[in-house]
Amino acid sequence: MTTQVPGDALVSLNAVNKHYGQLHVLKDINLNVRKGEVVVVIGPSGSGKSTLCRAINRLETIDDGVIKIDGKVLPEEGKELAKLRADVGMVFQSFNLFAHKTILENVTLGPIKVKGLSKTEADKDAMALLERVGVGHQAPKLPAQLSGGQQQRVAIARALAMKPKVMLFDEPTSALDPEMINEVLDVMIQLAKEGMTMIVVTHEMGFARKAADRVVFMADGQIVEDATPEEFFTNPKSSRAKDFLSKLLTH
């Protein structure tokens, strides 16, 4: 395991546990992510990687342990939590664009309502972001009129509009048709190059190889390996990881 100075971490999880009834989904998780780092979380389904990702902005509550964002302990419900969430961008598997709002409104709603930007300012920023992810011409449409890949890129733009300190991606390409996966990954790779701190739960090994600084392998609610992509893919240490990788490669 790579050792880090905790004070250095933008996101830090310390001895985090969570149960769903009898099921122990997060077992004593310790993880630190430094500023600018791209961490890819992989593992078989049911290993707790999505729960881990969602716990970081408290969409899932935890039973014990401490999660800190930029040195601040994640607050309980309320105004403080909302404020902190604005600093943590989140991209979901099923996009979750606001179905009754246009593409442009999806991106401007947060800046206007949460950050208090004027509509003109928010519109200008939003258009720039939409151009950047390649869907500028779709701005006046409703989400349902866009393809999955386009919707997911809008979702990334929506998260970026809040100028977050860290971006969480919860299986961002799992719901996409194969031909649309790359357009989303390209945007993410670009983002990683620009120095965004990212935690990405994915099955896309190609992305992990290309963009990740570290790969975290989870199984049965535990972090089993935490290594560089090179190390992990060429020389996995645990039998669980070997098993997992062998299954991927045979396909």
């Binding site: 909302a82 902190l84 969430r85 604005a86 600093d87 979750n96 606001f98 709603l109 949460v114």
Partner: peptide, 9 residues
């Protein structure tokens, strides 16, 4: 969830 994750109350 999406609304909460962009910091809405």
């Amino acid at each position: 969830e999406a609304a909460r994750s962009i910091g809405m109350k």
